[in-house]
């Protein structure tokens, strides 16, 4: 019965159910924060699924766009008097424009050259955030205005709400929205061209696709996703440091995408879930925490080449057939 529903509706359905029932299993309100962080990371990762999974381009600098989004929310309310939500949009617009502007020359590069160019782009953004301390507070970070979600809801319904609970639902809805857009893109004409670029750029070019334009579209969309995720993290934590734009965060995002299964939105979300929750579980290993993290990353990539979710799915279908 489930098979008759179109795959993208099925994916959204599964995601909604998971978001709805997860809180029933939370032992304490702390887990709402973990849930929210998973959703925020998922949004950035969905963007990378479009770039890496659909279009087959790599980026080691997307944390830079998260940094732009985060600092837009930190700076625009005080300097431009914008409300936080509009600051989030402003950050997304700036990130999108920057990606569009640098995307053309950068995306002409291939493979590892593309990796090092995006890495450089991310480094440059993170250096500006670190160095311009009179605006950004430097490496010690700065406070961020509140989005006012909790206050607003409390005012509306005259109840007492926990910020992380409110954010869990807000970020959950945002993930659904992000996944819905990405899933629709997958089946759109643009998505089909992107996937053909992934398989073979030259073949796509030969059949008449404007490859450069489509790659640029994927790059810009993924930058906007990363920027929105950065804005949300800043507004959720109400405090931000340049660490959000660091090389290590870029690597973390790519790792989430690939570990879960770069080809699918659900896979990306699975990767974000694993890598966000794992450090909390690994605290039991104390000083062996990092050893375990490295080991898990290697084992997953060696034994589940398509990523966590696609491999699981394959195993399950095989068992179902047998």
């Amino acid at each position: 019965m489930l098979t008759r529903i179109p795959p993208r509706v099925r994916a959204l359905l599964i995601l909604s159910i998971l978001i709805l029932i997860a809180p029933m299993l939370f032992p304490s309100s702390f887990y709402y924060r973990i849930g929210t962080l998973i959703f925020i990371n998922s949004i950035a990762v969905i963007g990378l699924v479009i770039l890496i999974g659909y279009a087959g381009q790599i980026s080691l600098g997307h944390a830079g766009f998260s940094g732009i989004g985060a600092y837009a929310c930190a700076l625009a309310p005080t300097h431009l008097g914008l409300p936080p939500f509009l600051s989030l949009i402003l950050g997304a617009v700036i990130s999108g424009l920057l990606a569009w502007f640098v995307g053309r020359p950068i995306l002409r590069l291939k493979g590892h050259y593309l990796a090092v160019a995006t890495l450089g782009l991310g480094m440059l953004i993170s250096m500006v955030l670190n160095n311009e301390a009179q605006f950004t507070g430097g490496p010690d970070g700065m406070m961020v205005a509140s989005l006012g979600l909790t206050k607003g809801l409390e005012g509306l319904f005259d109840v007492n709400l926990k910020t992380s609970v409110v954010w869990y639902w807000f970020a959950g809805v945002m993930v659904l929205l992000g996944a819905w857009i990405a899933l629709n893109l997958y089946n759109s004409p643009t998505g089909r061209v992107l996937r053909s670029v992934h398989d073979s750029e030259i073949a796509a070019k030969t059949v008449g696709a404007d490859v450069a334009r489509y790659k640029l579209v994927a790059f810009v969309i993924s930058a906007v996703y990363a920027s929105i995720a950065g804005s949300m993290l800043a507004l959720f934590n109400r405090f931000i440091t340049p660490d959000i734009a660091s090389f290590l965060h870029s690597v973390e995002l790519v790792t989430m995408t690939v570990l879960g299964g770069a080809g699918s939105v659900l896979g990306g979300i699975a990767g974000a879930t694993l890598l966000t929750a794992l450090p909390q579980a690994l605290t039991v290993f104390h000083e062996y925490e990092h050893v375990m993290l490295g080991l898990i990353m290697m084992l997953v990539m060696i034994f589940m080449r398509d990523g966590l979710l696609p491999t699981l799915r394959k195993t399950l279908t095989r068992r179902a057939i047998a």
């Binding site: 702390f30 934590n237 405090f239 440091t241 660490d243």
Partner: peptide
């Protein structure tokens, strides 16, 4: 990492 620190702070308080 400030983001991790905040998560652990929440865990210490709420969990």
């Amino acid at each position: 990492d400030p983001n991790k620190a905040r998560t652990f702070a929440t865990r210490l308080v709420e969990d």
